[in-house]
């Protein structure tokens, strides 16, 4: 029996699938509670429906991207464990890096099925769990105090700057990533060589250029439903541009 067939055995699927099912149930509970609370507060049903639709369409493409992460890791860690890690808690960029470091600590030259043993798999899996659990631990101890403090502050100041600050923080987040794409192109292969990867810049630019079309339809043509699909639609065109670019450059 090869290591991959051991890692893809039904009991491993059962363990990982069971945890995923637990988290899925948890999401449904939160969803139903929030929906009911919204109705009890007199919130507009249409608004809540739009938030759900927009979030569902928004998440579709990144989820397919995450599926690729499962495929990439399945060659060395089997299918069920990467499936669990990337369905729950994990982050695409994190899993590969930690798994690789753990493999090196186990004396493996690289993360691969050829060098994997049941013991090294169990060790790598444990490290992947431990390294990224701190957000959850902090939530258990501090989420209540932290969110209550923020709500109180908001009430005291009359609901002004808190909202502005959150928007600004998000602008800062987007700017950091945009800057990294520009920096990657200009200095990615040596400072000021302009030899780095320019695909992310083109993809971001195309996606940003498509977005006004959706905004126009939503705001000027009063097709509010379009807004729910605006980010997903722009992303598809941006990603399609990457495919075209890949074919042209090749």
């Amino acid at each position: 029996m090869t290591i991959l067939s051991q890692l893809n055995a039904p009991p491993i699927y059962l363990i990982c699938g069971g945890i995923i099912a637990f988290v899925a149930v948890l999401c449904v509970i939160f969803l139903i509670r929030a929906w009911r609370a919204g109705l009890a507060l007199g919130m507009d049903k249409t608004k809540m429906k739009r938030a759900i639709t927009a979030s569902a369409t928004f998440s579709l493409l990144p989820s397919v991207g995450i599926l690729l992460g499962v495929i990439a890791l399945s060659g060395s860690l089997g299918i069920p464990w990467p499936w669990l890690r990337l369905s729950v808690i994990g982050a695409l960029h994190y899993e590969t890096q930690v798994a690789q470091t753990a493999a090196e600590q186990m004396g493996m030259s690289k993360l691969s099925a050829a060098e994997m043993t049941p013991g090294s798999f169990a060790t790598i899996a444990l490290l992947m769990s431990i390294c990224i659990m701190w957000g959850m631990i902090l939530s258990v101890f501090f989420n209540k105090k932290y969110t209550q403090k923020l709500t109180v502050k908001e009430n005291k100041t009359g609901g002004g700057f808190g909202d502005v600050a959150m928007t600004a923080m998000f602008i800062g987040l987007v700017s950091a990533y945009m800057g990294s794409y520009i920096g990657g192109f200009v200095s990615g292969k040596g400072r000021f060589t302009f030899m780095g990867d320019w695909t992310p810049i083109v993809v971001a630019a195309v996606s940003a250029l498509v977005m006004p079309g959706f905004v126009y339809l939503a705001e000027k043509k009063k097709k509010a439903w379009v807004e729910s699909f605006s980010v997903a639609g722009s992303m598809i065109v941006g990603m399609a541009a990457a495919v075209v670019l890949g074919l042209l450059v090749k």
């Binding site: 695909t199 993809v203 971001a204 996606s207 940003a208 250029l209 992303m235």
Partner: peptide
């Protein structure tokens, strides 16, 4: 052929969000 698309999910996402928030 599809690899560049999936490698650039995040730039596509932040491109759309950049327009939305920068404007």
């Amino acid at each position: 052929a599809l690899q560049p698309a999936f490698e650039n999910v995040v730039p596509a996402l932040f491109g759309a969000m950049a327009y939305k928030y920068y404007r």
